[in-house]
Write a protein that binds this DNA or RNA. Structure first.
Length: 575
RNA sequence: GGCGCGGUAGCUCAGUUGGUUAGAGCGAUCGACUCAUAAUCGAUAGGUCGGGAGUUCAAGUCUCCCCCACGCCA
């Protein structure tokens, strides 16, 4: 038995994520977690909401709610939707948790002790009306370069010139529109990442089995231009984790909070603490997953994320935990994903373009989405969602190949024998050929899953489903039955066993359907097959089953046409 | 402007360290079957591997130049 710590990139709190976000981290992470559990390994699978930062505050203000209340509500919304997609998190935490407060302050203190923090005095825009400092991009004004009147404090979108907020003519707050602004001196803490460059570089280079996408992004940040730059880890905001040195106050940093990028990844660790607390366990329970001096030496840690998150996971977060000088578990496998596009363009939150997680669940059960997204997972390049492809793939794979297999087998048995495994005959050459073939396919499937080759695993699973139909077509029990009912009984006995076999192997991809197959076959529990021959002899003669309802209903042309129209966003129709 | 990932059959994608007639699924066409969700199974057709030059006995696979799409940074 091996131990697997698995984390999915933590989604930001302000709003519901689209299908591209889902397939970019949570869904493949869940697939892997379910697979490892099915193989009998010990798994701790964690995810959380990322709750700090200015966007959360603004979203709360827009909703007319205190930010803490807003975050609590949105956390519940995201938790419910994740559950709707059957995310099997051991814990779905919050970066605003007490555990994360404590741990983030702890890391800051350790980094200070190690000499990796420096203080920097900076000038920043303060809005008297808003009663707060404004991040650069929340200052708007007229661009000194091109006179565009909606330039932002970090950059003019019109002429692309890089700006400082103080460059803007007639600056105003993007939050309130107020022009009552002033420049104030403010002090911030910076993490001296630059001094850790060689250490990080050596660590990255030691990861020979990481995807090229991951290492090339990390190398670029590490080596290009000035290389890794020191980054501010504090902000002048109210909402966040108060700046402290461990338990102690940090002189001159009163009223400031840690920058969201600093505390968010620490939540991966804090979340394990939340999980332990929620289950009435002590610190040792979670430390054995995260501390190599307290039992995590044999843990394999795998992170899942979209490619936009790679720099934080390969550089900033490792810099934080390496810099602490403490024996924290470092990531072993870092699986990153490209983007999913929608029908010829990008998913767009602002334009309402594409399908969002809550909407998807209103249309169809989660297994449809899980299957399509995972089998078209953007592993090596960006991939493309189209309704036509979605309809064709799910109808063919789920309804025709898998669902119909279950139908034809159970209904044939009911009509020729009964709703129980029939007696007579025995397995012959055809059956042994099938078993041999399936044994090879099972091992290939496991290899792909172990390597987190999601698309290839899906293709192999589909091949395993197809093998059942091939077998029926070759042996034709409906013909056999006319001359040799005993032989037909043996054939259908094998086919009935295949249903249970499929349920076990398919559960990581389509857990609901797998569960309903198990129930229909009156099998008590999932059990991952080791040897195909044994797995296909589990159901004994006389074992009763039910003929199920349609496992996967087909998606009609009318549905896809309507959905395509409905989710096309606010683009102007072509004339 | 710099850098990065890509550009392979109508569609979605595989193609290990360069090596025999470039693969899969879907879609299309034809055939078989009739137990089943008009399902299944088999067969066939389809690509000068973005373009050009080069290295090599041999290149989708290496080198250089160019074009296109996307992304990141400045």
């Amino acid at each position: 038995m091996t131990r697997h710590l698995i984390t999915s990139a933590i989604p930001y709190i302000n709003g519901i994520k689209h299908l591209g976000n889902l397939i970019g981290s949570q869904l493949p992470a869940d697939l892997y977690a379910r697979y490892q559990r099915a193989r009998g390994n010990e798994v701790l699978f964690l995810c959380a909401t990322d709750e700090h930062g200015t966007p959360a505050e603004l979203a709360a203000a827009k909703a007319g709610k205190p930010v803490a209340e807003y975050c609590a509500e949105m956390h519940d919304v995201q938790a419910r939707i994740a559950d709707g997609f059957r995310m099997s998190f051991d814990h779905f935490g919050r970066s605003s948790s007490a555990e994360n407060h404590k741990l983030t302050q702890h890391f800051a203190g350790k980094l200070q002790d190690a000499g990796l923090i420096r203080e920097v005095s900076d000038k920043q825009i303060y809005s008297n009306t808003d009663g707060r400092f404004l991040p650069d991009r929340y200052v708007e004004g007229t661009c000194p370069n091109c006179d565009y009147d909606k330039a932002r404090g970090d950059q003019c979108e019109n002429c692309t010139k890089q700006l400082d907020p103080t460059d803007l003519v007639n600056p105003r707050s993007a939050i309130s529109g107020s022009t009552d602004l002033e420049v104030r001196e403010t002090k911030h803490l910076f993490l001296r990442q630059s001094t850790m460059r060689d250490q990080l570089d050596a660590w990255i280079e030691s990861k020979k089995d990481w995807p090229i996408l991951t290492t090339s992004i990390a190398r670029k940040w590490l080596r290009d231009g000035d290389g890794l730059r020191d980054r501010g880890i504090t902000r002048d905001l109210d909402w966040g984790i108060p700046v402290k040195n461990g338990d102690a106050d940090w002189p001159e940093m009163e009223g400031k909070v840690f920058y969201v990028w600093f505390d968010a990844p620490i939540e991966y660790i804090a979340c394990a603490g939340e999980w332990a607390a929620a289950n009435g366990e002590d610190d040792a329970a979670w430390e054995r997953w995260w501390r190599t001096d307290k039992g995590a030496e044999d843990v394999t840690y795998t992170q899942f994320m979209g490619k936009d998150n790679v720099p934080f996971h390969t550089l900033s977060f490792p810099a934080t935990i390496l810099g602490s000088g403490e024996p924290w578990k470092m990531v072993d496998h870092l699986k990153s994903f490209n983007f999913l596009n929608y029908d010829g363009g990008q998913f767009s939150t602002s334009q309402g373009r594409g399908v969002f997680m809550d909407q998807a669940l209103d249309l169809l059960p989660p297994d449809y989405w899980r299957w399509w997204l995972l089998s078209h997972c953007p592993e090596n390049s960006d991939s493309e969602f189209t309704w036509e492809n979605f309809q064709q793939s799910t109808n063919k794979d789920l309804a025709d190949v898998l669902g119909n297999f279950v139908s034809r087998v159970t209904k044939f048995c009911r009509s020729k024998f009964s709703e129980a495994v029939p007696e007579g005959g025995e397995y012959g050459a055809e059956e042994h050929n099938l078993i041999t073939d399936l044994q090879v396919r099972l091992e290939r499937y496991q290899d792909h899953m172990d390597a987190i080759e999601v698309r290839k695993a899906a293709a192999e699973l589909r091949g395993i489903w197809v093998a059942g139909n091939e077998y029926l077509q070759t042996t034709a029990p409906w013909t056999t039955f006319k001359t040799d009912p005993d032989q037909a009984a043996a054939q259908i006995r094998l086919a009935l066993n295949l249903i249970g076999f499929y349920a076990n192997l398919s559960a990581p991809f389509i857990p609901d359907a797998a569960k309903s197959l198990l129930e229909t076959m009156h099998i008590d529990a999932f059990e991952w097959p080791k040897h195909v021959a044994a797995a296909l002899s589990i159901l004994e003669v006389g074992h009763a089953f039910d003929v199920p309802e349609v496992l996967f209903a087909k998606i009609s042309d009318e549905d896809t046409a309507a959905w395509q129209e409905r989710f096309s966003g606010t683009r102007e129709p072509a004339k």
